[in-house]
Every structure is written in structure tokens, then in C-alpha cells.
Simulated scan of single mutants.
Amino acid sequence: MNCTIDEKIYQEFRKALNATNVFGCEKEYVELYNLGYALLDRMEKCVGYINAHTMIPNSEEEFLLLMMYGSMVVDAVKLVLHLLEVEHPYTRDSQTTYSYFADVCEEHNLILPDGKIPTDDKVWEYIRSLSFAHPFETSRAKFLKKGETQYSPAIIPYAEPQLWQTNAEPTIDVMIYSTAFPEIKHLNIPYDRIIGYIGSRYQLLSLGTEKIKQIIEEKKQEWAKQKVQVSTNPLDTLKSAASIMESRHEDTRLRELISLLEVQSTIEENQQKIISYQSRLIEAVPEVVKMVESLDTEGLNDYLESLLAVPKPSYAGADYQLQKIFSGLNPYADAKEWMRGLKQAEGFYKDCGSKWVKMDVAKMRDNEIKLLVRIACDMQSQSEK
């Protein structure tokens, strides 16, 4: 029997879900996002087990595990498509809804009151209920007689070829006790139909992937219409660009760039150095606008990363000092981290910064300290070339 579960399907779903932050941030998609990741966390193991058990199992326990993992796949995909409002061929009363178990129904007289054969989905639910003996009876199946209740005391996988009928498919034999007849009934289900059914429902996940891509494309079309409000004041221009990126739920370093440009020198001796450094940052504004409007988020992030990089002085301990300064002197740090950041800023000033700038760590705001540290590192780097 060929493997029917293609791992690329759930991997492509994961890739599409990760392509934007929209699904994790916008209220209408949060349930889908959480379900999607719950599904993905389980799917790898589910698919792996099913693919390793495409041949008829040797024991009831193996079959029950197959049904358990198969149920996870079938139910999760069904719910994902429901949340995405995706229709598929199995939602309509067409021939495709009778692809796997129709002959089983005819052979075992599993017929609805109107004379129709139940769909594959209904038969799957019936098989699952019997297999799991949960909720210990199957009276919900609409093709049973009125008031009939069924129980399954055992499941027998016919794994030994000598037990198969001539030219017959290997089957799972579900034993049934019923309140409607005295003898034990045997429901024989070809195993490859069960695998085929699970695989067919799993493949529907690709429709979910396409719908996610469609949502992203529609978002991109909306974003492409957004224009940065270019002002004579570079700060206002950058604030407009930052607001646009935040509306797209993209985490960039634009706010960090803005904070550097907002710094006012508190010591006269630093003023020209600060103006010179800020002028270099201002030169980047047109490129930032271009990338925001062209939806080049990756390019923007790379550009800002390069622009805001801090060259590290070559003396021992400089790397540690810079890490603690920039991690501690920010609004998200706790009091202990902040104090550590100030202490390392003082150490940096003694070891290196005093050659290039004037700093009074006790009196300066955090943003001015960090800007002066950047300027000192930049000047130190230039002197070492």
C-alpha cells in the first residue's frame, strides 16, 4: 500500500501561516492562529505514525492508535476549513462523498431510513465510535433501527494473509453486540479504505493553505495603497512610516531610529557630534519610505539592522558592556536590569567613551546615554581603521 500522507501539505500550511503576523495579531484570526499551531504541533507526529502504519496492523492496539491519530487529523483539518469558511467537494451531496465506504454499507446493510447510503463522513464517525467504545454505544448512527444500541467488544485486524478470503482486501473486523439481534455481528472494513479516507481529508488542508495565501494577498493589496506622509520634518516622516508598519503587525526598529533622532544634547560639547550622527540617520529616511511603500519588509529590517549596528571596541569586556547598556536602558527592563545598564554605561565611559564624548550617566536620560555610546563606538571604530 502506498503512503497517502504527504508531509509537505502541513509544512506548506505552516509556511503560509508564518508568512505574516496578521493571523496572530488580528482578532478575527486569533482562533484560527491558535488552532493552526495546535494542529501543526500535533500534525508531525500524526502524519509520521500514519505513514509508518499503512500496512494492516498486527494488533488491536496498533489499530486504535491509527484511529486516534487519524481522528486528530480529520477533526483538526475540518475545523481549520470551517474557520476559514472553505468549501470542499466532501461538503456537498455528490459522488465524492461516497468514495471509500459505500460498498461496505451495502454489504452490511448500513442504510439510512430514506434508503440512501450514509456518506463516508458518517461511516467514519460510526467506525470511530465502535472502535473507541466511546461513548460506549453507537445509537447516534441514523442507519440503526429505532432504539437500537450497539457495542463493540473487540477489534480484530486480519494481518495474516492466510486469514484473507481469496482476492480479498485485508480487513479490520469490528465485532458488534446489538440490542436489535441476538448474534454477534461482524463489520469488515478494508484497511486501505480507512487509510485512504484519512489521507483524503488531510489533503484538504492544502485548501486552507490556499485560503491563507488569498487573505495575505488581499492584505498586501490594501497595504500597497498605503503611502508614507512625507514631511519636511524627518521625524514626522519616520513616525508615519512606523505607524504603517505597525498597522501591518510588523516589528521593525523604526521606533528605535526615531528615538535616536529625538535626543537633544544636554552638554554643549556633544552637540555637534550628535547633530553629525543624526544627520547620517536622516539620510536614510528616503530609503526607508521606499521600502515601506514597496512592501519590502525584509529589506527594511536588513537596512535598519545595518544602519543601527554598533561597532564594538576591541578592548576586553566591551561586548558585555554594550549588551547590558542596550538591554538595560529601555522601557521594558526591570529596575535591576536598568541599574546594571547604568553601571555598565559608567564603565564604558571610563574605558572608552571619555575619549570621544562627555557623559554624566547620573543626570542623562537613557536615550541620550545610548546615543552617546553609539557615537563613541563609531568614533573609536574609525580611529582603529
Rank of each mutant, 00 (worst) to 15 (best):
L308C: 11
L308T: 04
L308P: 14
A309I: 05
A309R: 11
V310D: 11
V310G: 11
P311R: 13
P311H: 06
K312G: 05
K312M: 14
K312V: 14
K312C: 11
S314P: 11
S314G: 14
S314I: 07
S314N: 14
Y315E: 13
A316K: 15
A316D: 15
G317K: 02
G317N: 01
G317D: 05
G317S: 06
G317T: 03
A318K: 01
A318D: 10
D319H: 07
D319V: 03
D319P: 05
D319N: 08
Y320E: 06
Q321N: 10
Q321L: 15
Q321S: 13
Q323S: 15
Q323P: 10
K324M: 13
K324L: 08
K324T: 11
K324Y: 11
K324R: 14
I325H: 02
I325L: 05
I325R: 01
F326T: 05
F326W: 02
S327F: 13
S327I: 09
G328R: 03
G328M: 01
L329N: 04
L329F: 08
N330I: 09
P331T: 10
P331C: 12
P331N: 07
Y332F: 15
D334G: 09
A335H: 15
A335K: 14
A335N: 13
W338C: 09
W338I: 10
M339C: 10
M339K: 15
R340Q: 13
G341F: 10
G341T: 07
G341H: 10
L342R: 14
K343P: 07
K343M: 05
K343L: 09
Q344H: 14
Q344R: 14
A345F: 09
A345V: 06
A345H: 03
A345K: 01
E346C: 13
G347K: 07
G347V: 02
F348M: 04
Y349K: 03
Y349V: 00
Y349T: 01
K350I: 04
D351A: 11
D351Y: 02
C352R: 04
G353S: 08
G353A: 08
G353I: 02
G353P: 06
S354N: 10
K355G: 08
W356A: 00
W356M: 00
W356Q: 03
W356D: 03
V357E: 00
V357Y: 00
K358E: 09
K358S: 12
K358N: 11
M359R: 04
M359N: 02
M359A: 03
D360F: 01
V361I: 15
A362I: 08
A362F: 07
K363T: 12
M364H: 03
R365A: 13
R365L: 14
R365Y: 08
D366Q: 09
N367Q: 15
E368V: 02
E368Y: 04
I369W: 01
I369S: 13
I369A: 10
K370F: 04
L371G: 02
L371D: 06
L372C: 00
L372S: 02
L372R: 05
V373Q: 03
R374N: 08
R374Y: 00
R374H: 07
R374I: 02
I375Q: 03
I375V: 08
A376L: 05
A376E: 00
A376Y: 02
A376Q: 05
C377H: 00
C377T: 01
D378M: 05
D378S: 08
M379Y: 07
M379H: 04
Q380E: 09
Q380Y: 04
Q380I: 00
